[in-house]
Design a protein around this nucleic acid. Structure first.
Lengths: 236, 236
DNA sequence: ACCATACAGACCGACAGTCGGTTTGTGTTT
DNA sequence: AAACACAAACCGACTGTCGGTCTGTATGGT
């Protein structure tokens, strides 16, 4: 009946189906049976690739934020950059990356995170980030302190806190972008900008950076703004 | 067989049993059957008092942090205090409150929060705080801005962020206190102090407060320190 | 006696996960 | 190129357990 596929292809298929369902009903309320129906395979097939429903969730997390982590580590490895440059480079890269993807996936991701349907997913994302991103971030902070641009006595606590806030920030942003897109509402874009600015100001304040050290303009006036234009252009 | 009890008493009994089990197995992996066994009642009894397992969880959340919210609202209502005084008063009150309770409940609460066993519980606590605490906190921030002691362009974002961080901070603290108590480790107390200081410094930095505006000494040198002494006295 | 509340426990549907068996692709032998 | 061998992919009936329901009973107040 069905063609045999490579494990990676089947898994992609399963992930695709699962995400659609998680976005509507949430992780808890999505049954494995409904996932396999959507994916067009059998129970046995599913459990051949995944040992549990939770293992699938972990695979999804890796897919969702693995790229971001890669970007982060890649930038950190560049020895020609100062800590401040690394930070700005990361902000630029992530925004560019998200800029490409956000519009096509905003509706879906927003639905995925909304209403606390997927607490487990959010938790897993946070754990993943804490494990993979926080140590690198701490390294960069220490570099910045050594270079004299960053001022903090609490690099470790700072790194963990930023990761925490960053994850929640991302999810909130996705949500708002979708709302803006759906309701063609220019005001929401102001809210988005405010949140962005607040987050960057928090970074500047707590790291003792000089005002305007971070690439606010590029994010706000550039990527985010053009993203907004794109959104408006699509719908209006 | 069983004495009839008032609803409040029975509920307290159920909550007690449930918390013990949640601490060991987590919310998800604790069955309603095991809760009623532990509490010594029947399925019918349980569902007479609670319409669902989740409703029990919400009751537990109210029990766990309702007091804190009350303290917060009570202080906010006092019109004789400046925003800064309110903030410090709250820090003092919460630490005093926790100082009384933390030792007897640290082991249990720590177990409850550890290992991500109770994501749903944490989420519910956060939602509760966001709904009940964040608006009040924003009011206080606005008062402070008006009084000229607080400096921020983002009172709403700040309030939400503080609540977020405060909840996670509390849970981390509980965890570390228990670890310190269990292993009689003075070094962990240093970690605790660091986290406290970082959190307060974050408040000062982002609210543009003058250094030392918040009652750091009282928290660190007073309550927290004496709490540490108590802990060491108990075990060492 | 009456009624509402508090409780008991057999029962149900739905779910995650299992298991024995079947198909399908791929290399290997003849 | 046909026959064989083997493993990975896949199937779907089945199971144990869970949250929740339902019908019935005991109890205390009025």
């Amino acid at each position: 009946m069905h063609k045999k596929l490579l494990p990676t292809e089947r898994k992609a298929q399963i992930i695709q189906a699962a995400l659609q369902l998680f976005a509507v009903k949430g992780y808890e309320n999505t049954t494995v049976s409904s996932i396999i129906d959507e994916a067009g395979i059998s129970k046995g097939g599913f459990y051949h690739h995944y040992n549990s429903k939770e293992e699938l969730l972990e695979d999804i997390v890796r897919m969702l934020i693995g790229d971001m982590v890669d970007i982060f580590e890649e930038i950190d490895a560049r020895e020609d950059l100062t800590a401040l440059e690394k930070t700005n480079e990361y902000i630029r890269k992530v925004n560019a990356y998200k800029g490409d993807k956000v519009i096509e996936t905003a509706a879906f991701l927003s639905e995925l995170y909304s209403g606390g349907k997927n607490v487990q997913l959010e938790k897993k994302i946070y754990d993943f980030a804490r494990e993979h991103v926080a140590p690198v971030m701490e390294k960069i902070i220490l570099q910045g302190v050594k270079e004299g641009t960053f001022k903090t006595e609490y690099p470790e606590e700072a790194a963990e806190t930023y990761v925490k806030l960053f994850i929640m920030h991302q999810q909130e942003m996705t949500d708002l972008f979708y709302e803006a897109l759906r309701e063609r509402n220019k005001e929401i874009l102001e809210t988005i900008k405010r949140k962005y600015r607040f987050f960057q100001k928090l970074l500047e304040d707590t790291l003792g950076l000089e005002k305007g050290s971070l690439v606010v303009e590029e994010v706000m006036g550039g990527t985010a703004e053009s993203m907004c234009d794109k959104i408006m252009g699509l719908k209006g």
